[in-house]
Design a protein around this nucleic acid. Structure first.
Lengths: 134, 134
DNA sequence: GACAAATGATACAAATATGGTATCATTTCT
DNA sequence: AGAAATGATACCATATTTGTATCATTTGTC
């Protein structure tokens, strides 16, 4: 029952670190050293972020990664979608046939409300907002 | 990213059905017929519910299950705890070492807030409340 | 042009969680 | 005694998560 899986978490850290070193080309090696994430796994994650338009990659010597858009416009929800699929808290109930006692409808309504709330909250979490210290 | 796994869902249905047939001894066979849940799996679930004080079981011929307490006092959150462990949306982040940029603290605060809200909502969902038709 | 340093693509693998089966023992009613 | 129920428990299949490994490609530097 994790809201955030490991790859999403790693991706989040990587993006935060890259954002904190804005204007610097960041190779995978730098992130491995700083964040202590297994290198091949991190590389795969960075490639995924690139493919999904969250990072821009530069090949060759002196290459690496930079944010593809401002840190204010990268949301935790984006990462969850990329690594964990569309956000559906109550997925398994949708697919199943109707229950006796109209349980399904009532329960679905309630879980939907919870889901909406979580989505609203997640939409407020950006890379930029995680960097602000206080 | 499921809030409710299959066994929790099955347990919920079983409890609803038993609650709807209050004062009737309900054997596993009756639930299998009514709810279309694989028998051995359901049996295991019922045993777990018994061990955790949500059902009372009666052995022998004419035996079966009945609610161990009023449907108003059985919460979805109880089932989630029994089948999915303690409710912790942001579990994986807790365990990990501090991140650079105080990311962890900020993120943890926010996920905690979301978690609290979800918990509050889940505490309002009882077996009884799912039975009410409207 | 050769070489080194970077990413791209992709296949494979280990560990864990989920969903489910199977079996035998025990209790209880008739 | 026998049938109908649950208790306990070991096992198994599948999917998901969390990685690893390998080779190809691009690009800057000497």
């Amino acid at each position: 029952m994790k809201l955030v899986t490991r790859d999403t978490d790693y991706a989040l850290r990587a993006l935060c670190y890259i954002a904190a070193h804005k204007d610097t080309m960041m190779p995978a090696g730098g992130l491995v050293a700083a964040l202590d994430i297994p290198r091949p796994f991190l590389r795969k994650i960075l490639q995924t972020l690139n493919r999904n338009g969250l990072l821009k990659s530069y090949k060759g010597q002196g290459g690496g990664f930079m944010l593809a858009k401002p840190a204010e416009r990268i949301f935790l929800l984006d990462l969850i979608k990329v690594f964990q699929g569309p956000f559906k808290l109550n997925e398994c109930l949708f697919k199943r046939e109707a229950c006796p006692n109209t349980k399904k409808c009532v329960l679905k309504q309630r879980l939907d409300r919870i889901e909406e709330h979580v989505l609203r909250e997640l939409k407020n979490i950006t890379i930029a907002s995680l960097l602000r210290k206080h």
